[in-house]
Computed example of a mutant assay.
Amino acid sequence: MKEPDFAERVYWLVTQIPYGQVATYGQIATYAGSPRAARAVGTLLRHSLENYGELPWQRVLNAQGRISFKGDLGRAELQRALLEAEGISFHQGQCDLRRVRWAPREVFWDVD
């Protein structure tokens, strides 16, 4: 059986984030085996709506617990609305990662 590539690992990991919890781009990159690839995770998720319509992309935030919108204010507003519908609150644009960060019990892939 073929080992999944980085993108496949990222997409799979994002589907594992439970409702009402979030992860950071760096966290997903690390769990996918490439801890220095946080920006690549962001790029994959930015294009996820076209490729993976059911992917809960909204559950991935930056390291400060903020929404990164890269000039797409509409998507940022949608992300916040989706997260708030899951019970995640924001104070001054930031959520409390200590309270809502996903903490899986296992390491998924070894670092490249």
Score class of each variant (00 low, 15 high):
Arg9Ile: 02
Trp102Met: 01
Ser89Ala: 06
Tyr11Phe: 14
Gly65Cys: 05
Ile67Pro: 10
Trp12Lys: 07
Ile88Leu: 00
Thr15Trp: 05
Tyr52Pro: 02
Trp57Cys: 04
Leu61Ile: 07
Val22Leu: 05
Ile17Thr: 02
Thr30Arg: 10
Met1His: 10
Arg36Ser: 15
Asp112Asn: 12
Ile88Ala: 02
Leu82Ser: 13
Asp5Met: 08
Ala37His: 04
Gly74Cys: 04
Arg99Val: 15
Lys2Asn: 08
Pro56Cys: 04
Arg46Phe: 14
Leu78Met: 15
Pro18Met: 07
Asp96Asn: 15
Tyr19Pro: 08
Val10Glu: 00
Leu44Ala: 09
Met1Thr: 14
Leu55Gln: 11
Gly33Ser: 04
Ala7Ile: 12
Trp109Ser: 00
Leu82Gly: 09
Ile28Pro: 01
Arg98Val: 11
Ser48Ile: 03
Val14Met: 04
Arg99Ile: 04
Asn51Thr: 11
Glu50Ile: 07
Gly74Trp: 11
Asp72Phe: 10
Tyr52His: 14
Leu55Ala: 05
Leu78Val: 11
Trp109Phe: 11
Leu13Cys: 06
Ile88Lys: 05
Gly87Pro: 07
Lys2Pro: 13
Gln27Gly: 02
Leu83Asn: 09
Glu50Trp: 10
Glu54Lys: 13
Lys2Ser: 12
Gln94Phe: 08
Trp102Leu: 04
Gln58Ile: 01
Arg75Asp: 09
Ala7Ser: 12
Pro56Asp: 13
Pro18Cys: 11
Gly42Trp: 01
Val41Ala: 00
Lys2Leu: 12
Glu106Tyr: 00
Lys70Ala: 15
Ile28Leu: 00
Ser68Phe: 07
Gln16Leu: 02
Glu8Phe: 08
Arg36Val: 11
Arg105Val: 07
Glu50Leu: 08
Leu49Thr: 14
Glu84Asn: 04
Leu45Ile: 02
Val10Tyr: 02
Phe108Thr: 07
Val22Ile: 08
Glu54Tyr: 14
Gln94Ser: 12
Gly71Trp: 01
Ala63Met: 13
Trp109Val: 03
Gln64Glu: 14
Cys95Ser: 02
Arg59Ile: 06
Leu82Lys: 15
Thr43Asp: 12
Tyr19Cys: 10
Leu82Met: 13
Val41Ser: 00
Ala38Met: 06
Arg101Trp: 05
Lys2Met: 09
Val22Lys: 00
Trp109Thr: 00
Trp102Glu: 01
Thr43Phe: 09
Ser68Trp: 05
Gln27Ser: 08
Ala81Phe: 08
Asp110Glu: 13
Asp72Gln: 09
Arg75Tyr: 05
Ala23Gly: 06
His47Thr: 11
Tyr52Arg: 12
Ala85Gly: 06
Glu84His: 02
Trp57Asp: 09
Gln79Phe: 12
Thr15Val: 04
Phe90His: 07
Leu78Ile: 14
Asp110Val: 04
Val10Arg: 01
